[in-house]
Design a protein around this nucleic acid. Structure first.
Lengths: 217, 217
DNA sequence: TGACAATGTTACCGATCCGTAACATTTACT
DNA sequence: AGTAAATGTTACGGATCGGTAACATTGTCA
């Protein structure tokens, strides 16, 4: 009833769509296979005939999300050919959309993060994906002329992850809605400032802080 | 066995400590009352005699975390009296510590965010706390001379939330370990730049992006 | 010591959830 | 039409979990 609004393809696809939707909304541990089967307008038996277990279903959902992320990335590259700065700006905007738009595979990726300290095979899969995306983004930032690309990507990663979390808990009134201007500002800052200046400023602030802390143990 | 390492006070305190510890590690829905009682070196019956239900226990844990957060804030204010900039810098460092240190009540607060779309009484409690903390931080930023204090607090909120999430999933090798320099840089940026310049730069970037998008529909 | 409160132990109930078995029904293809 | 595969339905098993009942044990204080 929730998912599978389009013209209802085979049950396998309906189940995957419903599962991804419900995993996003309730978390992986927060939804049962019965509810997934019902939302897919199917039943538990066909679900288990296509996917041997709930864990397998989770893994397939993650693979689909990864494929969409791949398309997401390729679309950025082809839409702004040979223009790293435009690609980076495009990435920020699309990431902002992915945060607020309901149908967002990012939420699925971080839902996998709920499987902490379990031997779930999806864990390694998601971590490898994350590393790949960050590596790509670092390269893009470098091409766009960012000196400390790693730190910028770290900042963007934290912002995206925080925005997803904030959106889910605080909704459209939370700070997540200001993700795009914030990310834009940080990107602009990294591009307009020389690395030396940034490092100097950071070192100075760090030194001040250390002194402060030592003065008040 | 996990918690209650200190000299084992009354069962009520041991249970609260164990519950907070396990809620952080496994999430609220990821741990059962039996495991909590065992970790507290107690049993389920005394747990239910002190706390009528698991939800009540969750609520008490959140109240304790809120009390610690209150002390955290007061400590910042008293350690750096009449020095908003130092207070803000101190906040950044302490927030960074809270992310990486195991015993961190922040993780408990966002664990409550796992109770999405449920009528859990802890939801409203946590949301009110979040609003209070953000309001205080906005005031502090304004005292420190930040023009667009709301946007800075939004950025810091997303960074903190993202760093907590990232730390839990990526651990000490993730981007969360770079929270402090990133936050410092953003704070410095907000303090050193006039608002008009920032807005101008954002508007320009926004306009560029819109043109780009329109050119490639 | 005695009495009462706090705590511990065991067993159980009902609900939920993952997964399976057996059988009925529909769909697809020749 | 007819056959086989895919799908749907019902019921069940085993495990876990929140919560309770009954009884045993320990601690506390007069």
């Amino acid at each position: 009833m929730t998912a599978a609004v389009k013209c209802a393809p085979r049950p396998r696809e309906r189940i995957i769509d419903a599962a991804r939707d419900l995993f996003r909304k309730h978390g992986i541990k927060g939804i049962g296979v019965d509810a997934i089967a019902e939302a897919a307008e199917s039943n538990k038996m066909t679900l288990y005939r296509h996917f041997g277990s709930k864990d397998d279903l989770v893994f397939v959902c993650l693979q689909e999300a990864a494929a969409e992320a791949e398309a997401f990335w390729n679309d950025i590259k082809t839409t702004n050919p040979d223009d790293p700065k435009a690609q980076l700006s495009d990435w920020v905007h699309r990431a902002g959309d992915f945060i607020t738009i309901e149908h967002c595979n990012c939420e699925l990726l971080d839902a996998a993060a709920q499987l902490v300290e379990s031997d779930h095979p999806a864990r390694r899969f998601v971590e490898e994906l994350r590393a790949l995306y960050m590596k790509r983004l670092v390269e893009l930032c470098r091409e766009a002329g960012v000196a400390d690309a790693e730190l910028l990507v770290d900042a963007l990663s934290l912002l995206v992850e925080g925005a997803r979390c904030n959106w889910r808990s605080a909704g459209p009134k939370g700070a997540a809605t200001r993700f795009v201007p914030i990310a834009q500002m940080i990107v602009a800052d990294f591009m307009h400032h020389a690395t030396s200046k940034i490092v100097d400023r950071l070192d100075k602030a760090e030194a001040e802080s250390v002194v402060k802390k030592a003065a008040h143990p």
